[in-house]
């Protein structure tokens, strides 16, 4: 069954066409990759899905519910979490606080109960810390829990950002180039985390990625974008053999 459906989505910035009449269906529990040359519109698609951009035309459905044009904080409440191509962590906050912020939508403490920090506010804080600690264990970042993220190496920051999205307990996770700029070992770790999240936690994943090795290894279905339009879709094997895809990539070089 489809969890997310994008119907004839278009996005224009003045004369630039970032997305052109795009149709995508994502299966519940699927691991869906979106690939394409630079500037193809992959990040723009994610920005539409998470509410950062408002599409020019078209519709986005989460199950039966239309989410087109909703605000990012409303969409996050419906269970869509994401990471960013250029890490967007809260650099002055610790790893722990970044992940705790990920639990914002699952918490209730307001300024009054927070000011007293007693009773429910305290219970909630402790409960969320336990949840976050599970994620820290899972991502193997125990050593840096209390470090400000700005001081951490790039590969670890990528992991923390994944952790922050996981803390939201999403149904759908959007990953924008999760292994970009990583070495072989870091890439393998990240690929393993993504598979575990998909298979063990049952989170539906949409992943933009340039690393074809990772895409071919773990994706179940691949959508190829070029100039904002879908030029191919299929299993990794089908995509690898597709002439239009090869052309699009070669044309770019």
């Amino acid at each position: 069954m489809e969890l997310l459906e994008v119907q004839s989505l278009s996005l224009r910035f003045g004369g630039i066409v970032a997305l052109a009449d795009l149709n995508i269906k994502v299966r519940e529990g699927g691991l869906h990759a979106v690939i394409g040359p630079n500037g193809a519109g992959k990040t723009s698609l994610f920005n539409c899905l998470s509410g950062v951009y408002r599409p020019t035309t078209g519709n986005i459905f989460l199950k039966d519910r239309e989410i087109t044009g909703m605000k990012p904080h409303q969409i996050s409440r419906l269970g869509i979490a994401r990471t960013f191509q250029n890490i967007e962590l809260f650099a002055n906050m610790t790893v722990m606080d970044n992940l705790l912020l990920g639990r914002h939508v699952h918490m209730k403490t307001g300024p009054f109960s927070g000011a007293l920090f007693y009773g429910r506010a305290l219970t909630e804080e402790v409960h969320c810390r336990l949840k976050v600690e599970e994620i820290i264990d899972f991502l193997e970042i125990e050593k840096v829990r209390k470090k400000p993220v700005g001081s951490l190496p790039y590969g670890i920051q990528k992991r923390v950002e994944l952790g922050r999205a996981l803390a939201m307990q999403p149904n759908i996770l959007l990953l924008d180039e999760p292994v970009a700029g990583m070495n072989v070992e870091e890439t393998e770790d990240m690929a393993r985390f993504i598979l575990d999240i998909n298979e063990e936690l049952g989170v539906t994943i949409i992943m933009v990625e340039h690393d074809m090795g990772v895409v071919m290894d773990i994706a179940e279905i691949v959508t190829v974008l070029d100039f904002g339009a879908k030029i191919a879709e299929g299993s990794p094997q089908e995509i690898q053999a597709n002439n239009r895809v090869i052309e699009a990539y070669l044309g770019q070089e």
Partner: peptide, 19 residues
């Protein structure tokens, strides 16, 4: 929670909203 939201807005408002 409220204080974390404040700092998140200061550091990166768009990411805060997405969270």
């Amino acid at each position: 929670r409220v204080g974390r939201a404040f700092v998140a807005i200061r550091d990166r408002d768009i990411a805060a909203e997405v969270m």
